[in-house]
Amino acid sequence: MSLRTFLPAVLVALVAVLPMMAPTTQVLLTLALAKGLPVLGVIVLLHAGQVSFGHALFFGVSAYAAAFLARVYGGGELISMVAVGVLAAVAVGLVVGIFVVRYRHIFFGMLNLAFSMIFFSVLEKFYYLTGGSDGLPVPRPTVAGFDMERAGFETVLFYLTLALCLVAAWATHRFLCSPIGNMMRTIKTNELRLEYLGVSARGVLLVGYLISAVLCGIGGALMAVAQGVVTPEYVWWVRSGEFVFIAILGGSGSVSGAFVGALIYEAVRTYASAFANDIWKMVLGVVLLGVILYAPAGVAGLYAQVMDRCRTRPANKTVDEDQ
């Protein structure tokens, strides 16, 4: 095992054991990982050269679907809540996706934003269904039929989240390396040629879009359960902007960047926002500018650079699979 793959493995192990040593970090880590999933969804689309300013839509749709399910059945079951959340996100993703994959660049970004704002105002205005700006409570669900104590449940939720993140990261990585994943990446460089290969660029982008909706869906349902409440804030444009920000910060070229970015982001926000609450958006903006102008590959890119420099043996094959 090379150093390059060894360190990420250590990081995963560290995240896995940290809550045993410092129990207060458990909820924080759960939230950070749950947020990493929609960030991964944003990264999938960035590989196609498109940025969505509305992906909180699928995050929120899933969270609300999970909350509704719990309410209808008077308390829910964790597995079915996540499953229903993902299904709802995919269904909405299909409808919205068929429309937005016709557009590129700023239109793609803003139309996604428009859809998320529509859902946001529906949540606020139709309060007799959605609880308005107070949102809906999400009672602690059973896990595979068992009622659990709070502490036990949080531990289960944390490891479930971690496991889902690992699976999602692996599957997304494989997707991006696969033939169809590579086709999706050509939408960024030469969509015309893709059409001249007999492939529908819109169709390929739609596949990527649905995958990103699934990732948002998993994250949204987990977040709803972890926080115990869903509010329209789940769908707010600031949330979507956060996903994009973390994707750029972590490194949009890489799958691991989503989670590294989310962990850094949540940690900084939790411990620093007390001092910088009023200028939090400004901090985000400045960091975003800095990353784009000076470190466009993000944290993951910096890591790859450091690794390249540390390598003592001459390179026989330097292709980084993540890039």
């Binding site: 940025v51 300013f53 660049h105 700023i106 970004g109 902007g241 994009v244 750029i248 958006k281 400004m282 985000l284 903006g285 400045v286 975003l288 500018l289 784009i292």
Partner: peptide, 11 residues
């Protein structure tokens, strides 16, 4: 480019 103007907006 889109992200840069978004960053300006945040600031």
């Amino acid at each position: 480019q889109i992200l840069v103007t978004f960053a300006v907006f945040l600031i």
